[in-house]
Design a binder for these strands. Structure first.
Lengths: 199, 199
DNA sequence: CCACACATGTAAATTGTTACATGATTGA
DNA sequence: TCAATCATGTAACAATTTACATGTGTGG
C-alpha cells in the first residue's frame, strides 16, 4: 500500500487539503503508518490526474492557495478495490530493539538514556495524544467512529501499553545485569555459535 | 540504521556467510527488522572494502563459493560507535491496521479472511518459531544469551501476545458490527467531519 | 517432477525521507 | 525575537524490495 491509497482513504472521511491530510494521519495513524509531505503532495497530484479526486482551489493572502481535495465516485471505487486486494502486512522496524539486542556493546549510560527516552515517548503518546484523540472523538456533534476505526485505535493503545509496561518492568534488571557484566572482567565472553546452535 | 550495521552486529556473534546472516536475522530479528539478500550482499561487500570484516572463501562444487565473513577489531569498534550514535526509533508500518481502519469499505468476507490470516500468522510465530528459538537457546552447549538479547526477544513475545489477544477478543464484535451496518440501509452515513471535529 | 535448500550476486523499480524554496501571521 | 502554524511543492538522495541470473542435490 502506498501513500496514494492512504490519501484516498483519508479523503473518504471528508474533503481536505494536503496539509490537513498530514495532520489527520499524524493523529489517527501515527502508530501504524507515516507519510511526509514529500509523498503526500505527489500522491494527490497523481490522484487528481487519474480522476480519483477533485480539486477546489481557494485563494489566500500571504500564503499559497489552499487546495481542497474531495474524493470522486471513481475514487471511492478505486479505494475499495485497492483495499480489497491489499495483503494485510504488519512490519516493525525498530532501531530501538536492535540497540537492546546489542546492549552489551553500548555504553551503560547510553543504554539508560535510551530506555528513559522510549518510556517517555510512549507515555506521552499513550497518556496525552491518544487520550486527547479519544476524548475528542467522544465529544458531542462528532460522528461516531466506525467500528473498524475503534478497532485500530484500540489495537494501538493495547500494544503500546504492553510495550511500555514491559520496558518499565524489565529496565532495572537489564541495567543491573549490563552494569555487572561491564564491571567483572569477563567482557570478552565468547558469545558466538548462536547461529550454529542446531548442529 | 542500515543493513550494514546490522550485518556487523550479527557478525559480532560469530563468523558466517551472507546466506547464514539472512537466516540468523529471520529467526532472531523477524519481528523488528528485516533485510533481503539484495541489501545484505552489497552491505557485506562494502564492509569488506572498509576493512570492517575479513572474508574467507571456501570452494564448493555445484554451487557458488561460500564466503565466510568475520568481524575485525576495526569492525567491532565501528559497530560500537554506530550503535552509540543511533537514535532509538521504533516504527510500525501496518497495512493490516489501515485495512481495519477502513473495514467499512471492505467486503465482510474479506474482513473475516484478513482477521483469520493475522491470527494464524501471529499464533504460528508465537507458538512455533519463538518457542523453538527459545528452547534452542536454552539447550546445553549454547552460550547464554546476553541480557539485552533476552530483553529484545521478550519484548517481541510480549507485544505479539498482546496483539494476538486483542485481535482474538475483538474479532467477533467487529465482524458483527460490520455485518450489521452492511445490512441496514445506512451505508452512506456521512462519516465526514472527523478532521474538523475540534471547531 | 516439483519445490526447496544451498549460495552468490546484480539491476531495475519502487518508495520514501530530507532538505530546500517561499513567506505571512500569531503567540510566548 | 524566536518558534510554530499555515501552505504548497520540488529535487536530490537514500534505502530497499523484487525479479533475474545460475546451478546442483535432496526429499516428498
Amino acid at each position: 500500500m502506498d501513500t496514494r491509497t492512504l490519501c484516498l482513504g483519508v479523503l473518504s472521511l471528508g474533503e481536505m487539503s494536503g496539509y490537513d491530510i498530514k495532520k489527520c494521519l499524524e493523529v489517527s495513524f501515527r502508530h501504524f503508518f507515516q507519510a511526509s509531505y514529500g509523498s503526500i503532495y505527489p500522491a494527490l497530484a497523481e490522484l487528481a490526474r487519474q480522476g480519483y479526486v477533485r480539486v477546489r482551489t481557494i485563494a489566500q493572502e500571504g500564503r499559497p492557495d489552499k487546495k481542497i481535495y474531495s474524493i470522486t465516485p471513481a475514487g471511492l471505487e478505486a479505494l475499495r478495490n485497492e483495499l480489497a486486494g491489499t495483503e494485510p502486512r504488519h512490519r516493525v522496524r525498530s532501531e530501538f530493539l536492535v540497540l537492546m539486542f546489542f546492549a552489551h556493546h553500548l555504553p551503560p549510560e547510553r543504554l539508560a538514556e535510551v530506555l528513559e527516552e522510549m518510556i517517555g515517548r510512549w507515555e506521552r503518546i499513550l497518556f496525552e495524544d491518544l487520550a486527547a484523540f479519544e476524548q475528542q472523538s467522544a465529544a458531542p456533534g462528532v460522528g461516531e467512529l466506525e467500528p473498524g476505526m475503534r478497532f485500530a485505535l484500540g489495537f494501538g493503545r493495547t500494544v503500546l501499553s504492553a510495550a511500555l509496561a514491559y520496558v518499565k518492568r524489565q529496565r532495572p534488571g537489564l541495567l543491573r545485569e549490563i552494569a555487572a557484566s561491564g564491571k567483572d572482567p569477563a567482557p570478552a565472553r565468547p558469545l558466538a555459535d548462536i547461529a550454529d546452535a542446531g548442529d
